[in-house]
Design a protein around this nucleic acid. Structure first.
Lengths: 220, 220
DNA sequence: ATGTTTTTTGACCATGTGATCAGATAAGTT
DNA sequence: AACTTATCTGATCACATGGTCAAAAAACAT
């Protein structure tokens, strides 16, 4: 009967305890795993450590993720998607200064807010991308080629210097991720203190200043 | 008797089988360990894998390095020292263009010749420098402060733009090491082909072009 | 209330691995 | 040749860890 099914849908629409709990637990586990994988690498990360970080019993982690590799893949895909969708400013209709500046800002901000994810990604690539090789070959290659095309247009239109677009992209990737991946080294060289808000601001400014001056033609 | 002791010294001067063999084995093991630690991280690297890579029995590796941590430390210290002594061009008496250009060249060349070492170092820092924390706090801090002082002199003398010296150093570190640490990603984006000689040349040129133009005042 | 499904959890197991050990072999010494 | 020392190696051990299992507890459905 319509009446009945409507009623049951009405109830189902209200967030249910089990579903809410499941999602809460999944999120807790993935977040904990991101930290543990970042700090220990894939092999060094154990269910025991992840469970401790998530503050739930080890068996419960295993209930949601019976295979360590699946949990790892979840973490890696998560950070990959964050990066992927957060940086679409490089379009030919934007001005090179703004586009590149925004991209640097965004990536540095992600290094600040998601350092563990960045480190997991770095680990994955260092070890030869055993899990995400297909992402590199499809998505990333495609994404990269499109941005290179935009940069080449900018060059052709005389809006920036004739730089090697690939080298420019790698330069931006490396420096922005460096502040996450080598954050411990930077912190040590900063007297053991994590970067303050002001230091992050100054970093963004300084990185943009060097790269943009290195790339963008002086405004006549 | 002098004669006797002289004789024995004369023999000792000739490289002896045991000593030669010992050094050869030590070198084989450390070189193999560098690869295995780079590809698997500390926890993922096993005596079995290292032995296989070195093509000697596992027990023999254990004979030379009874503690995995000591072998790891040896590998990390090795690459650290290579980096440390290979880049002393940043001196105030040198011209900024040449000094920074040489530094970038040297570090890129090391990324090319010692990519595994670079990856081991990256792993170590990502995991919070559990082994080399003291190196960072003493040596590296000191080294860095001296280079920053040089850059500040250059700025004061009006030879380069007033950039943030720390940001400049981190930029150079990150981009040069990126070509080793993320070499797999770069290779994939390069159609699965490792960089050719010409591509390395072009990379050096392009990186220097962007950074130097970003930093060094145009020659009047 | 009763039955069913999902979730939670401790006990347990099989496997891989860092490390030990003792015996064999080779090198060096007298 | 006889002896000492360094090197080499397979067998073995203790232990951590990824994963299984069964039973309890909670949530849900009727």
């Amino acid at each position: 009967m319509p009446a009945h099914s409507t009623d049951s849908r009405r109830f189902a629409a209200i967030p249910q305890k089990q579903i809410r709990n499941r999602e809460k637990n999944l999120h807790r586990i993935v977040a904990a795993a991101e930290v543990v994988f970042a700090e220990n690498g894939f092999a060094g990360a154990t269910y025991a450590k992840i469970a401790q970080q998530a503050e739930i019993p080890k068996s419960n982690v295993l209930y949601y993720f019976p295979k360590k590799e699946v949990l790892y893949r979840t973490v890696v895909e998560d950070i990959y998607n964050v990066w992927r969708y957060a940086a679409d400013s490089i379009k030919r209709e934007n001005s090179p200064e703004e586009a590149l500046g925004d991209y640097i800002d965004t990536k540095l901000e992600l290094s600040r807010t998601r350092p563990y994810g960045s480190r997991v990604w770095a680990n994955e690539i260092i070890q030869g991308a055993p899990i995400v090789q297909d992402y590199l070959e499809r998505d990333l290659k495609d994404w990269t080629n499109k941005r290179i095309a935009v940069i080449e247009v900018w060059i052709a239109e005389g809006r920036i210097n004739p730089v090697d677009p690939r080298a420019l992209l790698y330069l931006i990737w490396s420096v922005t991720q460096h502040y996450a991946d080598f954050g411990h080294q930077i912190k040590t060289l900063n007297g053991g203190q994590a970067f303050s808000d002001a230091q992050w601001q100054e970093t963004k400014r300084a990185v943009k200043a060097i790269i943009l001056q290195g790339v963008v033609l002086p405004t006549q």
